[in-house]
Design a protein around this nucleic acid. Structure first.
Length: 634
RNA sequence: GCCGGCGUAGCUCAGAGGUAGAGCGAGGGUCUCAUAAUCCCUAGGUCGUAGGUUCGAGUCCUACCGCCGGCACCA
């Protein structure tokens, strides 16, 4: 086997590319380059998911057709990957005609094999969102708009997912490598064994922007039946399928580990060999999200530090598969300590000595320890990038120490044959080690590695001793100039703001953080001033806060609005957004004359005023100026 | 609520029954080939809390606390 097919997810074009998309994609790029190191030609596919109601609406909002709109955003993704130098072989769009044909084929094949039937989907439907609301019960409201839901029955095509329960269990049980890491596999297996799979609705008649279902006018394919097929359609007509690896972030594992194999089984097509999920990138310990406005863009980092700095950071700092935290501080610290002071400085001192002491000619080969080569390759094989890099940097550290122990600058002044021979050995060992280290870090930091190779003036195989005696080195210049952390971070933050504006303009957005996709919450019915004054809004201060036992979202707060009776108890659904400790002492706005209500057995005497974002966390109302406790809002 | 993972030096983490570790940061020192880089020394951290098993427990058991996930037709 000397070819390898790997994919990233196709990204939904409701957002411009950011560090989350980039993480998966640059890992894929790294794996492709690692395969090349092993003599395997890898084929890398990414793309864009462009159908659906949300896109249709977003396009309409900016006065574009869905196709015009998705052309724009898809191009933005493609250009970003190009700018980052990622070695993508094919960018597959769900709106391509080739893809539509493949999805239809999958459908017809499944239908022929008896896994498709016409049924009805009944659910609570939100008219404002034009979508079904999952898990809704009678009396629930649309979580986005707060509007009532209607019980609607729609005729849909269904896929007999239920027929594959046993086969899927067998797949995951007999093939532990199919889904990695282990934690994800356990979750999927636990789920498959404990829940009965229900059939999957795969078409919609309420949506227009999608791939038409063959022989079923009015129906378009719904989400996964369409999106997952890009992995197949991108390489249709070639010998790449089955895929060797699907990479993704953990929130879409289920669709890849259950739906996707089931679709392929139903069609009788070969399954992919491996699914590997990585964790989430947190930003300075909190989740990145649109509503928090803390999503990091990549091009500012590239501009200030080079994309390799980010690649190195993400692969060295975060064990692949786990969640990890990104921060500009940590990024710059890694860059300075590992790349500038470590690799860059070792290169610089080694070449400089060869230049000064040997006129730029590498001495004759000597044997030396190079066990790190095998270690790094083993770790890479298991996608343990951080361990591979750790091993290589231990090698770098050993060389720095070795140089000091042998003090070549003293040997250079000693004309004895013994001293000169030792100097030769030191110089060769450092040079040859650097050549190999460069080859092994190249998949992670390809652009920098190319520049290092120019200075070494040699590449060659992963074998010790390849550099011949008398090899001439190239011109020496710093690869990773040290950065002043404060200045670098300031600059990245500035560029980040500019980049965000540019992306928002591109997507037709005006404000930041972005407005909820689609319609804003409809304005409530007009009221008179008399109605309004009935609502007694007061400024209060949080005296104590603790989680409510047995509730994920509730906090038990004591809020002081200056009443003689002391602070009152308020139970608020803000636990997902705020730590109890950070609330204490904070000024908040409460509705003070709301009828008391019991929540989880605690009587709540009022409610806290907060902005409610689309599917996101609530944000407490606050004042810029200081306000006395008890002040009334009018 | 149920299930799973995690909680070890300021930070990121390793260790999985036998006298607490690494890298980074910080403090001190050193060499001079090098990007004020390198190298050396310095961390005394109740290993989340409380019990228990054991001659002996970060390391096994139990309970509790905290954090993060999973509990499907949400992208």
């Amino acid at each position: 086997m000397n070819q390898y097919y790997l994919t990233t997810p196709i990204y939904y074009v409701n957002a411009a590319p950011h560090i989350g998309h980039t993480y998966t994609t640059l890992v894929a790029d790294t794996i492709k380059r690692l395969k090349a190191l092993e003599g395997i030609e890898a084929y890398l596919v990414t793309g864009s998911d462009e159908h659906g109601q949300k896109i249709q609406r977003a396009a309409a909002k900016v006065g574009k057709s869905p196709q015009e709109y998705t052309d724009l955003i898809a191009a933005e993704f493609e250009q970003t990957w190009q700018k980052l130098g990622l070695a993508i072989d094919k960018f597959q769009r769900t709106t391509s005609s080739q893809h539509a044909a493949a999805v239809s084929r999958l459908f017809l094949e499944c239908e022929k094999n008896g896994y498709i039937y016409m049924g009805s989907y009944t659910g609570y439907y939100s008219v404002t969102s034009e979508a079904f609301v999952a898990d809704a019960k009678e009396g629930d409201v649309d979580p986005d708009s707060g509007q009532p839901l209607e019980l609607v029955t729609e005729e849909n095509l269904f896929f007999k997912l239920s027929a594959f329960q046993d086969k899927l269990i067998e797949l995951h049980e007999t093939n532990p490598g199919f889904l990695q890491p282990e934690a994800r596999r356990n979750e999927i297996l636990a789920f498959l064994k404990s829940e009965k799979l229900q059939d999957l609705s795969i078409s919609r008649t309420t949506i227009q922007w999608g791939i038409p279902v063959p022989n079923h006018p009015g129906h378009v394919f719904y989400v996964w039946f369409d999106a997952l097929m890009t992995y197949w359609s991108a390489v249709e007509g070639t010998d790449h399928w089955p895929a060797d690896l699907h990479l993704m972030s953990k929130e879409i594992v289920r669709f890849h580990a259950i739906y996707w194999p089931a679709f392929l089984m139903a069609a009788g097509w070969p399954l992919p060999k491996r699914i590997y999920s990585h964790g989430w990138l947190l930003f300075e310990a909190s989740k990145m999200s649109k509503s928090r406005g803390n999503i990091v863009r990549v091009t500012p980092i590239q501009e200030v530090m080079g994309i390799d700095a980010l690649r190195y950071f993400l692969l060295r700092e975060i064990p692949f598969g786990s969640d990890g935290s990104f921060s500009f501080d940590a990024l710059v610290a890694r860059y300075n300590s590992d790349l500038a002071n470590g690799l860059g400085n070792l290169l610089s001192r080694t070449l400089s000595m060869i230049q000064q002491y040997r006129g730029g000619a590498v001495p004759a080969p000597v044997a030396a320890d190079h066990a790190a080569i095998a270690q790094a390759r083993e770790h890479y094989d298991r996608f343990e990038f951080h361990k591979a890099l750790e091993a290589l940097w231990r090698w770098i550290g050993d060389l720095d120490k070795y140089i000091v122990e042998n003090a070549p600058w003293k040997l250079a002044k000693d004309a004895s044959p013994e001293a000169q021979a030792r100097l030769d050995a030191v110089l060769y060992r450092c040079f040859e080690s650097l050549r190999l280290i460069t080859a092994l870090v190249a998949p992670v930091i390809p652009q920098s590695a190319a520049r290092i190779r120019e200075q070494l003036n040699i590449d060659g195989p992963l074998e010790w001793g390849h550099t011949p005696a008398g090899h001439r080195i190239g011109a020496v210049a710093p690869i990773f100039p040290r950065l002043d952390p404060a200045a670098a971070i300031d600059r990245m933050r500035q560029l980040e703001a500019a980049e965000l504006d540019r992306q928002n303009a591109l997507m037709g957005k005006t404000a930041e953080p972005e407005a909820p996709a689609g319609n804003i919450t409809p304005i409530a019915e007009t009221i008179s001033i008399d109605d309004f004054v009935k609502v007694d809004l007061r400024v209060g201060v949080v005296r104590s806060a603790e989680a409510v036992k047995g509730a994920d979202k509730l906090l038990h707060l004591k809020i002081d609005i200056g009443e003689a009776s002391g602070p009152r108890t308020i139970v608020a659904g803000i636990a997902k957004a705020y730590q109890p400790a950070q609330l204490i002492g904070r000024k908040v706005v409460i509705v003070a004359n709301l009828a008391p209500r019991k929540l989880k057995g605690i009587e709540s005497q009022g409610m806290i005023v907060a902005a409610s974002l689309e599917g996101g966390a609530p944000v407490l109302a606050a004042f810029l100026e200081d306000v006395p406790i008890g002040a009334r809002l009018k």
